[in-house]
Amino acid sequence: MNTILLLNGLVGGVIFGAIYALIGCSLNVLCGVLRVVNFAHGEFIIAGSFLSYVLLTLFGLHPILSLPIVTIAFFLIGFGLYYLLIPRLAKSDEPETSSFLLMFGVSLMMIAAMMWIFEADIRAVEFSFDPINVSLLVIQDAYGEGRDGRVIVPTARLVALGINALLIIVLTYFLYRTLTGKAIRAAIMNREAIQIVGINIHSLSASAFGLAAALAGITGVVLAFVVPSIDPNGGQDISLIGFIIIVLGGLGHPVGALIAGILFGLVEQIATVFLPQAAAQMLGFIILITVIFVRPQGLMGRMTLR
């Protein structure tokens, strides 16, 4: 019987892990290129969920079809938001800490706006796939002789995993094989040097902000496949998970975030199987704190503290 639970935990872990990986990745693009720690990232994601909800309820658009609209809308929002907020930030005494506070302000505004539009209720994005569930495998004699157990997964979650896997592949290709992607990685390593080489840091940063926002929007749509409902107040928890992922993976290290995200998802989901819920949630923070003290540069990162 434990095998079934464990397998369920593993499958859940991979599905949630892929989402966490995506959250960490987009957050890390911001951290690396802009030195901005986006406290409002969770709210961007929730806003993505809400946009797909609106498109579904008003126009009957299936969430998968709303993906391109969400992507473009969020890219433009992110692009504009960069010019509105970030260039001024460089003038403050401690840009990193200020960015944290600034984005906290943005997150408060976004929560309030979403509460105003959607009220405090939680909403479900109601659509379904056929069949609703997929049975992945059958374990013989799991509950004793002749009582086989099944590892059952909702189709929507599998679709979410598929979209995520695809996104991760595209993103990795983009960052490591295309010119813009390489420029973004170069900017993560050295912001000053890249300007000397003749790259306009502002338009690059704005694109990075747009990219991160678009990824957050997509994550929101995908998240709506996986969780039963969306809550305007849920952004903060998502942001916190995002922070855990980027610190685990290494600040400014996109691939590190991918690995850390999947690891974290696995640990969390397997822990929920065996521990009470509050304890399982705490586990993530305890891992975070341990990693920070033992290996401040993150599991994969090589960045020093100074």
Partner: peptide
Amino acid sequence: APTLRLNGIFFAIVSLSLAVVCQRLMSL
């Protein structure tokens, strides 16, 4: 106090997480 070894943003994130740990601990 050991968190004071961290600087800038690491400190902010860890400090935030510690507050969440305290909160969860109280309800546990």
